[in-house]
Design a protein around this nucleic acid. Sequence first.
DNA 1: TATATTTGCAACTGATTGGTTTCATAAACA
DNA 2: TGTTTATGAAACCAATCAGTTGCAAATATA
Lengths: 108, 108
Amino acid sequence: MRRDVFQAIADPTRRAIISLIALHAMTPNALAEHFDTSRQAVSKHLRILTECQLVKQEVQGREIYYQLELSKMKEIDKWLEQFRKIWEQRFSELDNVLLTLKNKENES
Amino acid sequence: MRRDVFQAIADPTRRAIISLIALHAMTPNALAEHFDTSRQAVSKHLRILTECQLVKQEVQGREIYYQLELSKMKEIDKWLEQFRKIWEQRFSELDNVLLTLKNKENES
DNA sequence: TATATTTGCAACTGATTGGTTTCATAAACA
DNA sequence: TGTTTATGAAACCAATCAGTTGCAAATATA
């Protein structure tokens, strides 16, 4: 069972769950109300999110509050870093081209 | 066929392809040399990446150069924005707590 | 022109996915 | 104590996935 953050966020329902619990912890029941699927399906998604440590549980009586593990989200951000570097570089290259054009204009 | 950026980056081989072509365009054959899978499997991954516009082709004779569409990568970055906001907020909250503690220390 | 190279596509396969329904467990409450 | 509520786990199912092999088309080269 391959279980990593990227596979976890591939599913749209799981992305929605992640967004919902990003601010406050929520119970599976409360979450399920936001979707067309069954409570059990949501529970299954939560299991996947737990397995890749994107989510942590806080038991409160018979209820379980699920909360996003923000630090794990940074893993995605970390992977994006390499591309961010490139697009910033490309952007500054474009800047240089524009600057050169402007200078040439002033010279003439 | 659900085909979006998030589903595209779920596969580790596709993530590797994306990283490889981020800097220079590459042909399917050249890409396939980096993996244990067949050329056809890589070709299939490229088709998926093309379908969600993460990649663009440049035909050159009988060779096809695949290049990353950086702008599409920003879609992931955009989705992450909401969480980045939260973790920066949490961080500044922590900052405030530390500052309050420090002030109390000075008062005593 | 005949041959080699680069590529994509189709058909098939076993594994995985996301959903369902059913059941078991544990806590809250009457 | 008996019932309701909240939850996870198991068994099943259709669809999708990532890989394979074989083939066709187009370009390059001898």
